[in-house]
Write a protein that binds this DNA or RNA. Structure first.
Length: 234
DNA sequence: GCGACAG
DNA sequence: ATCTTGTCGC
């Protein structure tokens, strides 16, 4: 698929923050997709020991059967350092490259991280959504910002993730008796819809099949090209 | 000023 | 994210 970057990718913290402040206003937290979701894609990135090499993977699944429709990967180098709140600048370049390898545009994107549940309301999921224009949401394993009451222990139970007076996401129990995940809007989707999709995608494990598949593919791709020890021999 | 801090 | 053994519990 086609993904345009328009501007040079930020290289400093100041530039990155400025870009987030400028793009945050483009985010829509309203459902925009007319028809049914046919395909959903998960994206993730794996790093080697010293983060010198990274591998991004995108796995497109049939939304109904959850079977793999297509995959794409991209090998790259981490340029931006890990900085809480600026996660997108570290991972998205490789993710965009992988997305460009797809011959079909997914109907929905699922990120491994937060969207609106971010200090400037512009986490990884929002950024990717704005770049692609595709409905996107994030499912994170841990909280970043916000407070929440522990949801009931039953699968499907949830409680709002709140910052000040804003609901920025949801703590959702995807498996009974298991730690909740944190769902938040990325772009062109509502929190309710994102939550429902998350449950649909969590058939057997705490995390959505999309991120599990993408996680696995990014990891194996990295090892195939850099070796289990990061020697680069293969 | 001191921690906390997606992956 | 990644480095890592055993261990508690269903």
């Amino acid at each position: 698929m086609e993904v345009r970057l328009d501007e040079p990718w930020p290289t400093t913290v100041a530039e990155a923050v400025a870009l987030q402040e400028r793009l945050r206003h483009r985010v829509s937290a309203v459902d925009s997709r007319p028809g049914p979701v046919r395909t959903v894609a998960g994206v993730d990135v794996a790093y080697d020991r010293d983060s010198s090499r990274i591998a991004a993977a995108v796995v497109v699944l049939d939304y109904t059967t959850l079977e793999v429709v297509q995959t794409s990967t991209a090998l790259s180098t981490a340029t931006f350092p890990y900085e809480p709140g600026l996660f997108a600048f570290r991972e998205l370049p490789a993710v965009v490259e992988a997305l460009r390898g797809l011959s079909v545009d997914p109907d929905l994107l699922v990120c491994d991280g937060h969207g609106l549940a971010h200090p400037r309301r512009f986490g990884l999921a929002c950024h990717l959504g704005v770049l692609t224009g595709i409905p996107t949401f994030g499912v994170a394993k841990t909280v970043f910002i916000g407070e929440f009451a522990p949801p009931a222990t039953r699968r499907g139970s949830w409680s709002p993730l709140i910052v000040d007076t804003d609901v920025v996401g949801a703590a959702l129990r995807t498996r009974s008796g298991v730690k909740p995940v944190f769902v938040s809007v990325g772009h062109r989707i509502s929190l309710d819809t994102a939550r429902e999709h998350t449950l649909t995608l969590c058939t057997q494990y705490r995390l959505p099949e999309t991120t599990r598949q993408a996680d696995r593919l990014s990891r194996t791709t990295l090892i195939e090209h850099t070796g289990p020890d990061g020697s680069g021999a293969t």
